[in-house]
Amino acid sequence: MIICRCEEVTLEDIRDTFHTYKCSAREVKLRTRAGMGYCGGRTCRPAVDAVLEEVTGEKPGDDLPLKVQPPVRPVSLSVLGGDGDHA
């Protein structure tokens, strides 16, 4: 079952990574890249959090939080300023 579509991470990948490396929820996320793709985890974040909590037993918000920086949507740098020309 696909959990994160942007990075093509399956439930099996997350389980395997946890069992192989015996690591924290944050490390599982960094190793598999679940929730770190183009959409910024806005699509799969609840699923990733729920799976990691179930697999690792860590609740989000423990010592090493699964850092969430939600943008409204991904935008290009030119949206933030300038017209894309090299000034």
């Binding site: 579509r5 942007c6 093509e8 183009y38 959409c39 806005r42 699509t43 949507r73 991904p74 290009s76």
Partner: peptide
């Protein structure tokens, strides 16, 4: 998919998931 080459199309269709991103007149994403 940029790495695996597996096909992608409409997923959420409400502008949320960016699965359908294409390049329009040279502008990506």
């Amino acid at each position: 998919h940029e790495e695996s080459g597996r096909p992608r199309g409409i997923y959420c269709n409400i502008g949320h998931c960016f699965e359908c991103r294409v390049t329009v007149d040279g502008k990506a994403g």
